[in-house]
């Protein structure tokens, strides 16, 4: 057995114990005729994920993933995170290997951690956007800056549901990131049993391109 396979073997075995049953999440193929796919920011995704995810998998946290850890992997709010764990060099194109952990989540023995669930399992060429780090050195120092990550808990009134502070593009599936044991502790919801997230949480308009409202006189 090659070294790479051994590592992978362990990961997969670790998963088998706790992995959730069922096939990977797939989007339904049959939309009503003439209705474009993915309307309402792919709102359908939330309902599909909700249907297919057992309640047990939406609760609990190991508390290890925090916002600090989350942003450490990113270059600006919304950038694709880099891969923080070892990836065998030959681990190049077989996307099912990524999705075997990140498709539905689960516990990984090697890392002693739960795998975060991707909000976009329909994109299979994972290494197109997510790359590991082979060195920490830079080629040339950078003057890159970006904005502060969005503040949490921006309810309009005490206790009212906070708005969605990020773009929904490629991150339409609330349940993937905001529930379950791998969810970032600060943004995990306590009410995973409610499946219609955008009933209460609405996108905050300042994070999207927008036109100023004018009244028609």
């Amino acid at each position: 057995m090659k070294e790479a396979d051994k590592i992978l073997g362990k990961v997969v075995t670790g998963f088998a114990a706790i992995c959730l049953t069922g096939a990977l999440l797939t989007l339904p193929a049959d939309a009503a005729p003439d209705i474009p796919q993915g309307f309402d920011s792919d709102g359908e995704k939330i309902f599909n994920r909700f249907d297919e995810t057992p309640l047990a998998a939406m609760t609990g946290t190991d508390g290890k993933r925090t916002l600090d850890v989350y942003y450490e992997l990113r270059q600006y709010p919304g950038s694709p995170p880099r891969v923080p764990h070892d990836v065998p060099l030959s681990f190049s194109g077989d996307t099912m290997k990524c999705l075997s952990c990140h498709g539905r989540g689960g516990y990984d023995v090697n890392q002693n951690a739960y795998a975060p669930v991707t909000p976009h399992p329909e994109y299979e060429s994972c290494a197109q956007c997510h790359v590991p780090r082979r060195t920490e050195e830079l080629f040339v120092e950078t003057e890159w800056q970006s904005i502060e990550p969005p503040r949490l808990g921006r309810s309009e009134m005490g206790g009212s549901p906070p708005p969605i502070p990020h773009s929904l593009q490629i991150r339409e599936d609330c349940i993937a990131c905001h529930t379950g044991p791998a969810a970032v502790a600060e943004i995990r919801v306590e009410h995973g049993s409610r499946g219609n997230c955008r009933q209460c949480h609405v996108p905050m308009i300042a994070t999207e391109p927008r036109k100023e409202f004018t009244r028609n006189n």
Binding site: D68, R74, Q75, E137, L138, S146, I147, E148, P149
Partner: peptide, 17 residues
């Protein structure tokens, strides 16, 4: 440059504006 950029683990992946 490499030395000054990674004095340890940075709090976040970018410098804040």
């Amino acid at each position: 440059a490499a030395g000054s950029i990674f004095p340890g683990i940075s709090f976040a992946g970018w410098q804040k504006q």
